[in-house]
Design a protein around this nucleic acid. Sequence first.
DNA 1: AACCATAGTATACTAAAAGATACTGTAAAG
DNA 2: CTTTACAGTATCTTTTAGTATACTATGGTT
Lengths: 115, 115
Amino acid sequence: MEERHPELCRVEDALSILVGKWKPIILLHLLQEDTHRFNELKRKLPGITQKMLTKQLRELEEEDIVERTVYPQVPPKVEYAISEYGRSLEPILEAMHEWGQNHTLRKNQKNKDES
Amino acid sequence: MEERHPELCRVEDALSILVGKWKPIILLHLLQEDTHRFNELKRKLPGITQKMLTKQLRELEEEDIVERTVYPQVPPKVEYAISEYGRSLEPILEAMHEWGQNHTLRKNQKNKDES
DNA sequence: AACCATAGTATACTAAAAGATACTGTAAAG
DNA sequence: CTTTACAGTATCTTTTAGTATACTATGGTT
């Protein structure tokens, strides 16, 4: 990992794509079930506002992580899918999920010990 | 990755520890050279303020990622080291660094193609 | 006596992220 | 004729993250 030059590290570049209160969970949903319509996704993310969902999706699209397909219909139909490139994030998400799970257990254990 | 329940995902827990403008690079420095004094680390992070460095380190300490050792001397001496547990983040940082490197290449290529 | 280094804390400020709410246009259903 | 669903946009407010700057205590050096 740039053993001699941490200042050249590119961790932030990956991080900047995953960061955002909703991005990881959006990606997980898209990884699990490839295509989603806008409102379908919205229903799966309780609490998100349209504005935020739009913003997160646009940012992911900008980085070629998700693909947006507009069907010129009325009422509108827009589908979101994870791209081939987006799938390359899966191992990272997987690793973070496992680490996070273990970390949560560790914290709960710690709190139990204290009481 | 909780194939059936993205809502139980723990990616955020891992993410919350890595997020912060300085945390990844602090961790990389500590992974590369185990113990650092406060100002030694500060010198390696151009632009960081004392307040931020203190805050980031305290947060990492809180999660048992770094260990803080105070030597009761004057002038003060405080050493920071990555914990055994903290080292478990290394594969994730490594994976993100590699992904980020590739992503940066990809973006540069894209910009070149456009011009 | 003034200055340096150590490892911070305190206070005030700015910028960025997120949230709340209202609004758009069209077609179909009730 | 009113309501619903669709996929958003626009505007405003709140919250959080990060920056800037000044200050603390102690002891050694010049």
